[in-house]
Amino acid sequence: MIWIAVMLVVLTLAAALAVLLLENLLAAVAAASVVSLGVAVMFVILQAPDVAMTEAVVGAGLSGLILALALRRLGQATLDIDANEAEHDA
């Protein structure tokens, strides 16, 4: 059990770092969803199923959808890193 918790925390922290460090914004959005999913599993372990459900539905699902839609509207929803870089420098 303790190893599950350790692995979860490591995964979540790594995803949180990836949110800040990934060049591609679409990948960063995906990493943010991974953070939410990891936190949701932690809520389950911490005996908070209500909150876990909310976090999984809202944080990992809807929030990622909103972020991705906004990214598309910003014209940066691309898997091409060069395009992002060009935009960033402009």
Partner: peptide, 12 residues
Amino acid sequence: FRMVLALAVAEA
């Protein structure tokens, strides 16, 4: 945009 993402992480 990344600031918004970071806000979500801090919130979690």
